[in-house]
């Protein structure tokens, strides 16, 4: 039995293209119905955020007060009704999406880059370095996330930037732990030793072998954390420490509508639903990813 021998460089590069492993993950993710629902929902929110200016006018619809049209029930002109100042709630939800997703993603990126680096260093080098880093983070972890965020915002002052920093920092210990655990499980694999045996330096090993192989739990954790960062943002805004009115944000919309909840429920219903739906869809995606990335299920 002989296999056809192809010898030229060209032939190989043309014929057999490297398959992406993410394609496999995507294939498996597609099989999960809940994850697909989550993906569609989050895609809708992303679209809303992206095309907000085409959907509604920020100055006129989301901010412009119109006392004559205050507290209107949902209708064809005002899909989700209007609030106590006569602003279109749908427009405010759409612009709120921008803030929520933006703050969620940026703050998780902050936490991931700082916490991830610390966790990777702690996990890879171990010993005293590990101990020092993790004990400091343990202290941070002992403070409830939201309390920590409140403290930071209170100290720095309420603004979008400070909010992102606060939510980001309060998530650092969590990310450090996940990345550290993940790195630890990969570190003792023989292919790491094998890389050292061919003369690879530490940074090559970490970047090329350790991190790519510890990605799966980190990706899942980050997805779930975007959801909780959105929750944190809304919570902080709700208690007046986050995004300040009149800037539309789901949390402060809830806070503003609170007084009218008995007669005009729709004012709080739509921002509440928006929060629930984004958080839910991110969690669905996270769970789907967890299964799709788990090589044991193959």
């Amino acid at each position: 039995m002989s296999t056809p021998t192809t010898t030229t460089y060209e032939k190989h590069t043309l014929n057999t293209k490297k398959k992406s492993q993410w394609l496999d993950v995507w294939k498996r993710l597609k099989k999960s119905r809940t994850a697909v629902i989550g993906l569609i929902l989050i895609l809708v929110f992303l679209m809303l955020a992206l095309f907000a200016p085409f959907i509604a006018d920020y100055e006129k619809d989301a901010l412009g007060m119109n006392v004559k049209e205050r507290l209107q029930s949902p209708s064809l002109t005002h899909w989700f009704g209007t609030d106590e100042f006569g602003r279109d709630i749908f427009a405010r939800i759409v612009y709120g999406t921008r803030i929520s997703l933006f703050v969620g993603i940026i703050s998780v990126s902050i936490a991931l880059s700082l916490g991830g680096t610390l966790g990777a260093i702690a996990g890879y080098y171990g010993g005293r370095i590990d101990n020092a880093i993790m004990r400091v983070l343990d202290v941070l972890l002992a403070i409830p996330t939201i309390l920590l965020a409140i403290t930071i915002v209170a100290a720095l002052g309420a603004s979008i930037l400070n909010l992102m920093i606060a939510v980001g920092i309060s998530n650092i210990p969590g990310f450090a732990r996940v990345v550290r655990a993940s790195v630890l499980s990969v570190k003792d694999q023989e292919y790491i030793e094998s890389a050292r045996a061919i003369g690879a330096r530490d940074h090559t090993i970490i970047l090329k072998h350790v991190l790519p192989n510890s990605m799966a739990p980190i990706v899942v954790f980050a997805t779930l954390k975007v959801a909780s960062a959105i929750m944190a943002t809304s919570s902080l805004s709700f208690i007046g420490l986050g995004i300040q009115p009149p800037t539309p944000e789901w949390g402060n919309m809830l806070a503003g509508g609170r007084a009218y909840i008995r007669d005009h429920m729709y004012i709080v219903l739509s921002p509440g639903l928006a929060i629930v739906l984004t958080v839910l869809s991110l969690n669905l995606i996270g769970d789907g990813l967890r299964d799709a990335l788990d090589p044991k299920l193959k």
């Binding site: 694999q189 292919y191 072998h209």
Partner: peptide, 13 residues
């Protein structure tokens, strides 16, 4: 060096 376990000594990615 050549390792024992051909399943853990090659980077799966």
């Amino acid at each position: 060096i050549i390792f024992q376990d051909p399943f853990s000594s090659l980077d799966p990615r």
